[in-house]
């Protein structure tokens, strides 16, 4: 699958380059015209002016992009999948157990496991086979109760499929306490509790109505302080507005999640291509000679060879390479001149 993608991407690159060449050739005059205003704009910024000449030529065509090859520079950090060998974690621990967890003011989560023994017990009790039994989560509102199985404020059932091992439950009510039974319902409608969860509470999603007399404040003051959360400096928002403030505010994640590899950058969509040029200047002389390139001394390898690599901007580079013998008796200068331009 991946291979295929790369192939296609490569084809697209080929095509694109051709297309661009064609276009550039056919409409050379127009292209130059287009470049001019951009160059003038760049004059505004001191550095940008110098850079206009070396800006990497970029082409944007189509929406596909080469996703795989590591040899292409890419604008976004990219990691191929890595695999490690390890044993798998057990799928079961041999417990009959259901655990509830609070996700937010409206949702709780439960996971469970049922042993074969417990299944058989339930089958016996229900006089039905496991697969024929209707499986449910019975969700009790146990707010303010010392829950004993029959004193819940109310409950509701959620039908689940036999293979499920966990479930997100929309309890829909903040600031309440909940208990979840994993159960089976027989054909006669009898509920058999298979496992009972711990008790969890959903948090409040608004301000508390409980007010401490000693720390009482006028409603308006509190709403003003609350309103600051939504950027309402000076105003005290109404109750409905407060709900909205909170919802909007919590949607914005104001935490970064640490270090670079933790998060992905926003991707610029579309095909992309970058072309840069570099120049390698290399040569050799007597190992004990002194060599300068464009007037700057360079370090020779032990055998007297040298190799320098330069980013090559548009324009002309005059590169005098001067070697002087150790006894300063002899010297030689060789001056390559390189002209580069991009179209």
């Amino acid at each position: 699958m991946k291979k295929k993608k790369t192939k296609i991407a490569k084809k697209i690159i080929k095509k694109t380059v051709k297309a661009v060449k064609k276009k550039a050739g056919a409409a050379a005059g127009r292209v130059i015209k287009k470049v001019k205003p951009a160059a003038r704009k760049a004059k505004k910024t001191r550095a940008a002016r110098k850079i206009a000449a070396i800006m990497t030529p970029r082409v944007e065509v189509g929406r596909d992009r080469a996703e795989e090859s590591k040899y292409y520079p890419r604008p976004t950090p990219y990691l191929p999948p890595r695999q490690w060998e390890h044993e798998e974690l057990p799928s079961k621990y041999g417990d009959t157990r259901i655990v509830a967890m609070t996700r937010d003011p409206h949702w709780i989560f439960a996971y469970w496991e049922v042993t074969d023994d417990r299944r058989m017990q339930v089958e016996r009790e229900a006089s039905a086979s496991w697969n024929d039994l209707r499986k449910v989560l019975r969700v009790y509102d146990v707010t303010g109760k010392d829950f004993n199985g029959s004193n819940a404020n109310r409950f509701f059932d959620i039908d689940i499929n036999s293979e499920a091992i966990n479930w997100y439950i929309n309890v829909g009510e903040p600031n309440r306490s909940w208990c979840v039974d994993l159960g089976a319902i027989t054909s006669s409608g009898k509920f058999i509790m298979i496992a009972r969860s711990n008790i969890v509470s959903t948090p409040r999603d608004g301000a508390s109505d409980v007010i401490d007399e000693e720390w009482m404040s006028v409603e308006e003051q509190f709403l003003k302080l609350y309103g600051l959360w939504g950027g309402f400096a000076g105003a005290s928002p109404g109750k409905a507005q407060i709900k909205k403030i909170m919802k909007e505010r919590l949607q914005q994640a104001l935490a970064s999640g640490g270090i670079s590899s933790f998060t992905r950058p926003e991707k610029f969509r579309g095909f992309w291509m970058v072309v840069n040029t570099e120049l390698i200047v290399y040569g050799a002389t007597e190992p004990d000679a002194t060599v300068t390139v464009q007037g700057r001394p360079i370090k020779l390898n032990r055998d007297g060879s040298f190799s320098l690599r330069f980013a090559l901007p548009d324009g002309e580079q005059v590169i005098p390479v001067k070697g002087v013998s150790a006894d300063k008796a002899e010297e030689r200068t060789i001056t390559p001149i390189v002209k580069k331009y991009t179209r």
Binding site: P203, R204, D205, G206, A207, S208, D209, V210, I211, D212, W215, M216, S217, Q221, F222, L225, Y226, L228, W229, M246, R249, L250
Partner: peptide
């Protein structure tokens, strides 16, 4: 975070400040 205090009980007189 902010809402831990704004939604605390009893209602905190000074908000998060």
């Amino acid at each position: 975070d902010t809402h831990a205090i704004l939604h605390a009980s009893p209602r905190p007189k000074y908000g998060v400040y």
